[in-house]
Design a protein around this nucleic acid. Structure first.
Lengths: 142, 142
DNA sequence: CTCCTTATTGCAACTTTTTGCAATTGCCTA
DNA sequence: TAGGCAATTGCAAAAAGTTGCAATAAGGAG
C-alpha cells in the first residue's frame, strides 16, 4: 500500500484534504521511521517537492500530530522531533551517549488509570520523555 | 531568607558563581511561582536589570535547570517554560480550557522502578506533561 | 586590598519558528 | 466535467532561540 492510499482516507474521513505537501512529508516520516526535526523534514521533503516552504512544514507537522498521523517527542537536546504514528510508545534517552530506546505505553497503563481517577480529568495524550544512563554508560562511570 | 542567601551557596557548592543576571532570573522565577516562558523571564528580569540580553536568559535558564534550581516543562502550546524548583511534580493540562493541575511525582514511583529494572537504565530525569479534559470541560462536551 | 584565573556576559550574526494575508487548489456538487 | 467554496499554501516580515568570540567580573589566593 502506498502512502497516498494509506493516509488519504484518514484525512478525508476527518474532513481534511490530501495535498502534495502533506504527502511528501508523510512519505519522509514513513520511510525514515525514526525521529526527524522540522528542519530535517524540510530538507528531505523539499527534495521531493521543490518549492515547499518552511512555514508549510511546521504547520503540517503540527497538523499531522493533531490528527494522530505523526507524533511529537522531545529529543535529547530538548527540541521537538516528529515520527510517523505507529504503536503507542515513549522514549528513554541516555544523557551521556544519546542512545535511545522505546518504552512501551503498556507499562504506564495502571499509573494512567490512577491518575484519571484521582484527578477527575479524562486523559487524552501526553508528552513523555525519560532520561537516564544506559547500562554501558553506567559502567564507564565507576 | 533572600533569594541571594538561598541560592548563592547552592551554586558555590558546585563551583559556579552567583551573578546579578542569575539572581534577577531566580528572583523572577521564585516570586512568580508558576511557569514562565524564556521571553516572559526576559521581559521581567530586564526590568530589574536593564542591559540583560536574551542570550543570557536562554543560557541561564538552561544552566539553572542543569543544576536543579529551575525545572523545564512543556506547556500547552508545546513550548518549554520554566519554574523554580520545588517539590517533584508534573503537569496535567486541559486541552480545552488550558486549566492546569499538578501531579505528584509519588504516583509514578512504582512505574519508575519497573522501568529501571526492565530497561537497565538508571533514570535521572524526565519531561512529563499530561493532557486531557478537566471535569468541567467534560460536562460541556456532552 | 589587590591580583589573577576563568566562569560568565554582551554583542552581533545567524538559524529556527511563527504569523497574517492574499493566492491557490482540493474535492464536493450539480 | 465544470464551478464554487473553503481548506491549504507561499510569501514576507517578525519573533524566538542559538552560537562564537572578545570583554568583563566573581571570588579565591596572597
Amino acid at each position: 500500500m502506498t502512502c497516498a492510499e494509506e493516509y488519504t482516507p484518514q484525512l478525508r474521513a476527518r474532513g481534511y484534504r490530501m495535498t502534495p505537501q502533506r504527502l511528501a512529508i508523510l512519505h519522509i516520516l514513513h520511510h525514515n521511521g525514526g525521529h526527524l526535526s522540522p528542519v530535517e523534514v524540510f530538507d528531505a521533503a523539499r527534495r521531493e517537492l521543490p518549492g515547499l516552504t518552511e512555514a508549510t512544514v511546521y504547520r503540517t507537522l503540527e497538523f499531522l500530530a493533531e490528527n494522530h498521523l505523526a507524533r511529537p517527542a522531545l529529543n535529547g537536546n530538548g527540541h521537538i522531533a516528529y515520527e510517523i504514528a505507529r504503536h503507542e510508545h515513549h522514549h528513554l534517552i541516555c544523557r551521556r551517549c544519546g542512545n535511545e530506546m522505546e518504552v512501551e505505553h503498556a507499562i504506564l497503563k495502571s499509573m494512567y488509570a490512577r491518575l484519571e481517577s484521582e484527578s477527575g480529568y479524562r486523559l487524552t495524550d501526553r508528552h513523555l520523555t525519560f532520561f537516564g544512563l544506559c547500562p554501558d554508560c553506567q559502567k564507564g562511570e565507576l
